[in-house]
Write a protein that binds this DNA or RNA. Structure first.
Lengths: 146, 146
DNA sequence: AGCAATCTGGACCGGGTTGGTCCGCTTTGA
DNA sequence: TCAAAGCGGACCAACCCGGTCCAGATTGCT
């Protein structure tokens, strides 16, 4: 475990494409450009829109556009937008009745520094850093190498 | 998301108890001491044993004992023992056919630095730090309060 | 030598969450 | 007025996790 949802991965891909092309792009267009299924792209875009990372423009000639360059978007923002708050365990912020041993649990609330450490690590990496600033697609050689 | 399994949480609790009591303890005994169901404790101990964090001694008077003080066990070791390798996405170390857009995916392998950052953050925290170095179990008042 | 306690390894099953799709509504430019 | 596009939600299937159980192996004790 300890992984982010696949949707988050898609989000990074879509954002990358969005920045690479620039301007306003439609969900179907981004779907074609990334290879991700259209409904999925739409879903991701909706989430990113709610998180304030992109902006949607309705009507014909509408689409989505980036609100900030990816170099200014920490990865944690994307993860929070898709996966929700970063918390390694359910035993955070006053969740009761979730842990069967909560009344004898010596680590209640102790994960906080861990969560903070993770958040910090994720905030220090921008989307641009993992989204290939200069979009270079993997050549077939790499796929064949494994 | 981005959370560790509950089993990992239990593992920390059990390890904490193991160190607090010291010596060799049985799975049923640890179950009673932590409030975690016995089969679950047994499962966790098995995993920790395979990971080399604890050692099992069979036969009557058998049980488990710590191989290292918790202050020397990074949290990442426990997470790896329970949850497996730390990798935020499925798109790591040669997984193909998992991503529907792998042939056009511009972020393939790009999560590596992220994984490294997480690993680093988790390696810098020991189990002892989140497991209350001086084991103070919640007084009955707390259990009664809910 | 036999017994019993304990770990070991595996299979098993139910529930919850995620991933993915679809539908109807709203907005807005042509 | 129409159609293209986003918006919000509901919906369903597949996968994975959490938790339990059982048979076997090992070993100290009597």
């Amino acid at each position: 475990m300890l992984r982010v949802s696949k949707l988050t991965d898609y989000a990074v891909v879509v954002l990358s494409r969005l920045e690479a092309e620039g301007g306003v792009q439609t969900a179907p267009g981004l779907s074609a450009g990334t290879g991700v299924a259209e409904p999925t792209v739409a879903k991701v875009l909706k989430m990113l829109s709610q998180a304030g990372l992109v902006e949607g423009q309705r009507g014909p000639r509408g689409g989505y556009r980036l609100l900030r360059p990816l170099a200014e978007v920490p990865l944690s923002d994307v993860i929070v937008a898709i996966d929700g708050p970063i918390a390694l365990t359910a035993c955070v912020d006053g969740g009761f009745g979730l842990c069967e041993a909560e009344h004898v649990c010596p680590v209640r609330g102790r994960w906080d520094p861990v969560n903070a450490a993770i958040r910090d690590a994720l905030s220090g990496i921008t989307v641009a850093e993992i989204a290939t600033p200069k979009p270079i697609f993997a050549p077939p050689a790499i796929a064949a190498a494994e």
